[in-house]
Nucleic acid binder design. Structure first.
Length: 321
RNA sequence: GGACGGGUGGGUGAGUGGUUAAAACCAGCAGACUGUAAAUCUGCCGCUCCUUGCGGGCUACGGAGGUUCGAAUCCUCCCCCGUCCA
């Protein structure tokens, strides 16, 4: 017995939240954020969390579930999401994922390999060792552990090399082998994916307009408050787009004008990376427009209906597995 | 009017006779990515042709001439910008 699940994918500022709310109201659904930044409590404006009004209108999940000091992982996200999905299934509600973080969506839908969790101790050792050795050190280590994996990862990609070495060492066998054993895809659900693909120039305009709106909504005060709250300097969410720049500005290290253009630029690049990722996502029904446009919302509803997702039917559709 | 300094590819900016379509950085474009993913990394980045090659042709370092086998690099004049002196 499988039930439908809707996933809305698309770049930042493409209107995923607005579309999700609309679909949830029409289809009897609840929203499950699939976004690595909205997980964090307190970082609200810059991560473009759904508005209080939207959150009142429709129930949202997996927003504000972590403290700033904690750090999210794809595996952890998957666990939490599965728990939420089971709850929705029990209550006969349609899950609507708003997916900005491609890796998390993939981790949920396709699963992750049964690989060891990250070890901060080991990572720290590797990082230190890389710092005192000539370039290419990590790749040489990985080459000894797993030649194929070493060839796939660029010598400069310290982050991925460390993860690969970590898996080899902790699992006591090559990463390639661990990955080859496959991953446990999500079962019991049929994912129906809607992709938002607005015109590039229009998207960039939205990004700029949204940045102004975020600042007008008090983003800077939010950052000031977060800084004053005693969070560690290195807290993960300060790496999110905008938070670092605004913090630098508040410390007098960056002019507001420069901070703004840096934020806009980082956001545009982020949007591009999201588009590159989602282009490869299988079985996406692409709509060329923004999720808050009525025409796009109508089209999304039509297409979902064609895929067997309709109002009132979601908990009643018999399915052969 | 005079004395210097400077004008380089979308931007910043190296380069002072040949291995230079021109360093580097930024921007831009494309891409990779199975536990940091709003992260991390890679490629391309004057135009054009093809047999896609450490391939051919064309255009390019303010403008016009000149020197030279060869010039972004040297010379002459002109234009523009900056600083200083009148």
């Amino acid at each position: 017995m499988t039930a439908p699940l809707v996933a809305i994918v698309g770049p930042t500022a493409s209107g995923k939240s607005a579309l999700a709310v609309r679909l949830a109201e029409r289809l009897g659904g609840e929203i499950v954020a699939c976004d690595s930044t909205q997980l964090y409590r307190g970082f609200d404006i810059g991560t473009a969390k759904p508005s209080p009004a939207e959150r009142r209108a429709v129930r949202h999940h997996l927003i504000d579930v972590l403290e700033a000091g904690e750090s999210a992982t794809a595996g952890d996200y998957r666990q939490r999401a599965i728990t939420v999905l089971e709850d929705l299934r029990r209550r006969g509600r349609l899950p609507i994922l708003t997916a900005g973080t491609g890796l998390y969506l993939r981790a949920l839908l396709e699963g992750l390999a049964d690989a060891p969790l990250r070890s901060e101790v080991l990572r720290e050792r590797l990082r230190k060792s890389a710092a005192v050795h000539p370039p290419g050190h990590l790749q040489r280590i990985l080459r000894k552990l797993d030649r194929a994996a070493a060839e796939r990862i660029a010598a400069a990609d310290e982050q991925k090399l460390i993860r690969a070495i970590e898996i080899c060492l902790l699992a006591r066998r090559p990463v390639s082998e661990v990955h080859r054993e496959g991953r446990a895809a999500l079962s019991g659900w049929r994912a129906r994916k809607i992709g938002l693909a607005p015109d590039r120039a229009a998207l960039y305009e939205r990004i700029h307009a949204r940045l102004d709106a975020m600042l007008a909504a008090g983003w800077l005060d939010e950052v000031r408050r977060l800084m004053a709250s005693g969070l560690p300097e290195a807290a993960k969410p300060f790496d999110f787009i905008g938070y670092g720049e605004l913090r630098a500005h508040l410390r007098g290290k960056m002019k507001m004008e420069d901070a703004k253009s840096a934020i806009a630029q980082a956001t545009r690049r982020y949007a591009k990376r999201q588009m590159a990722w989602f282009r490869r996502e299988p079985d996406v029904v692409w709509l060329s427009g923004f999720g808050d446009e009525p025409a796009i919302q109508q089209e999304a509803l039509r297409r979902l209906e064609a895929l067997g997702v309709s109002p009132g039917l979601n908990d009643a559709q018999p399915r052969s597995v």
